[in-house]
């Protein structure tokens, strides 16, 4: 039964990683931007929720709804004033600007909130377990996985069923030609990054609920998110969910064998997938 429990824990953890990865996948899919600050933006989201909690005294779930518009606005600003200026043929400027942003964010958070680890306390709901067949699963981790599935489904609906989604896809295909149809790519990109940061805020909520966080943990989250995106296959949102689950299960299995093997097992799964299926499990885009 132990291995069944490990598998279940891994899948739930994978839900969190899928949430980390969804924003990265979205931004890459639309504008081919690899955002090295994504992990730190998730951590920023967690601190924004923390501030909302301490200012309003609300439960983190409700505080997160206040944080969402803040992070959406921040994403729009970042894209409009920073990322849009460096997008182009040359991959160097966007990489270096987002890497610089990562380091700056990390250290601003360190200066503001110190290196002490924090946690978003969910109250009594944290201790609630739900018996599912032979194993008992935490309600909050279940909600994490449920949210991940819901977010991916919602993003897919947005992409393939709405006018905005059509604009996203068209801009992704050819950012020059869409301008003839009255679409302004810079604005589309800004909305996309805003949405990505809303997803990141949701990820931050469950990150803070699950474990302690501090300003330095961003880069590791970026790596997990990136692994999930690559394992799933570039450009496929459901693939990203699958990639998150693969990393989650691999980490849980590694940790079950030896606690210090958790992260290493996740990386090993990533390397294995890359060696045998270089384009991921469900490739869609051509790059």
């Amino acid at each position: 039964m132990i291995w069944l429990d490990t598998l279940a824990q891994g899948i739930l953890l994978g839900g969190l990683y899928a949430l980390f990865a969804a924003g990265l996948s979205l931004v890459f899919g639309i504008m081919r931007l690899v955002n090295l600050a994504h992990g730190d933006l998730i951590v920023l989201g967690a601190y924004v929720i923390l501030v909302m909690v301490s200012v309003t005294g609300l439960n983190p779930f409700l505080a997160a709804t206040l944080a969402l518009p803040v992070m959406f606005g921040f994403g729009m600003l970042l894209q409009t004033h920073l990322f849009n200026r460096v997008l182009g043929e040359d991959i160097l400027p966007p990489l270096l600007v987002t890497f610089g942003l990562s380091v700056v964010l990390q250290n601003v958070l360190l200066e503001t909130f110190s290196a002490d680890s924090q946690k978003l306390s969910m109250g009594p709901v944290e201790a609630v377990g739900v018996p599912v067949g032979p194993v008992t699963l935490g309600l909050v981790p279940l909600a994490t996985l449920g949210s991940a599935v819901a977010v991916i489904a919602a993003l897919n609906l947005l992409f393939y069923r709405t006018k905005l989604g059509r604009a996203f896809r068209a801009t992704s295909d050819d950012a020059t030609t869409v301008q003839l149809m009255g679409i302004y790519p810079a604005r589309i990109f800004s909305v996309a990054t805003g949405i990505a940061l809303m997803v990141a805020t949701l990820a931050a909520l469950y990150l803070g609920a699950r474990a302690n966080f501090d300003p330095t943990i961003g880069p590791a989250r970026l790596l997990y998110a990136f692994e999930a995106v690559i394992i799933g296959g570039l450009g496929s949102l459901w693939g990203t969910l699958a990639g998150g689950l693969v990393i989650g299960v691999a980490q849980a299995t590694g940790a079950a064998i030896r606690p210090e093997w958790q992260i290493l097992a996740g990386h090993a799964a990533f390397v294995a997938v890359l060696l045998f299926r270089p384009r991921g499990l469900f490739p869609r885009a051509n790059d």
Binding site: L82, R85, V86, L92, P93, L96, V97, G100, L101, V103, V104, N107, V108, E111
Partner: peptide, 12 residues
Amino acid sequence: ILLGLIGMGAML
């Protein structure tokens, strides 16, 4: 922080 900001400024 300053070094990071100058680096970003250089790229921009």
